[in-house]
Amino acid sequence: MSPTPSLREDAARLLREGRVKLVIGYRAHAGGGQGPAVPEGACRAPLAGGGGRRPAFIEEAHRAGELVFDGACSQNLAAYLKKPEVRARMPLAIVASEAVGRSLVSLAAESQFAQGALLALAFRGERYEGVKEVEELAALAREAAPEPRRDPDIGRRLAELAAWPAQRRAEWWSARFSRCTRCYACRAACPGCYCQRCVTERNVPQWVSTAALGHGNYAWNMIRAFHQAGRCTLCGACASACPQGLPLMLLNTFLAAQAAEQFDVEAGLDPAAKPLIGTWDPEDDNSFFT
């Protein structure tokens, strides 16, 4: 564990100076990797990070010493911005790994927080970069990832699937989706799944069957993935949250690669980005139309 003194100093200073009302970060948890410690009054953590790291919600400067940051801090804290009790404490600061940083940039592009309502205590790898506005965070993200990063194992798996006949792909996916219990942990863990009412919760009309059966599971997993197209920063929170171990990153990575390949869109790098689904170009691929 690196004590990261300047992180703690910055967090304490921001709180002391009244620039933020809340700092969201990570703290150590003696209990190791069991269930998450839920802060008083706060929502249940959507995901317990491994390695004994727990989310920390710090409102008083003197508690900033609890903050830690290291490679074990894998939970995407940006997901907490969905919570009304967290939003009520803006302006706030959030400890931002590269993954969290990209989520924040993406959320800024979708006007999910007002300018100045959020500061990042930014990390690049395990190196602390200081207090960053969203614009600076985006610059950091662009610097850190000049080329899109894709998991090569996932790439191999996707290539393997692509070589199969459609029916075999359908069977393979059906077998996996059939395990889905529709617990929506994936949704809860994802910072981008912030709809006040998810379309699956809509019952008039009910587009997506809520029963944990093949058709509803297929529709849910398709629409979840599709709604992330051009928005998913591939942080992996959904897949880590899934208690059934569904290969959600295959879908996410596939669509992210499509967004990059077809439309040159990489999520989480530009806080002024317009939505991929919601813009168009006359030169977009037209080859699949007869």
Binding site: L158, L161, A162, A166, Q167, R169, A170, E171, W172, W173, S174, Y218, M222, A225, F226, A229, G230, L251, F254, L255, Q258, A259, Q262, F263, I277, D284, D285, F288
Partner: peptide
């Protein structure tokens, strides 16, 4: 559709 058709193709449609 440029994205959806690819996603559905991946999953068997």
């Amino acid at each position: 559709w440029g994205l959806l058709r690819k996603l559905l193709d991946l999953t068997g449609i």
